[in-house]
Design a protein around this nucleic acid. Structure first.
Length: 100
DNA sequence: TGAGTGATTGTTCAT
DNA sequence: ATGAACAATCACTCA
């Protein structure tokens, strides 16, 4: 069976803000792009619903989409990830420079 | 070499 | 300003 079943190990992941000096932030996630577009549509159809509703509703329909529908989001996620590769590379070089 | 770990991303909402 | 559900991620680090 898979190691990480649902999300990861099963820990209530806690949100943590910055932590490193030049933290080479990772790439966004498909959900981030999806939420970017859905937030307008979801909130537009539910003018007045609170984060509790939107947040959950958003996640539900996020998977409700077909692979093709998530494709454009995953596509951006992959592109964003590459973006992270750049900062991570710069973070590596910069780190060395500063270290020196 | 392989494993998993943590860190991060963005929305909305409230305080 | 931040955190919290919602979901994905996935590159990094370590022995």
């Amino acid at each position: 069976m898979p190691k990480a079943a649902a999300s990861r190990s099963g820990k209530p992941i806690k949100r943590r803000t910055k932590k490193d000096p030049n933290a080479p932030k990772r790439g966004l996630s498909a959900y981030m792009f999806f939420a970017n577009e859905q937030r307008e549509n979801v909130r537009e159809e539910n003018p007045g619903i609170t984060f509790g509703q939107v947040g959950k509703l958003l996640g539900e329909r996020w998977k409700a989409l077909n692979e093709k529908q998530r494709a454009p989001y995953e596509s951006k996620a992959a592109a964003d990830k590459k973006r992270y590769e750049d900062e991570k590379a710069a973070y590596n070089a910069q780190e060395e420079e500063e270290s020196s």
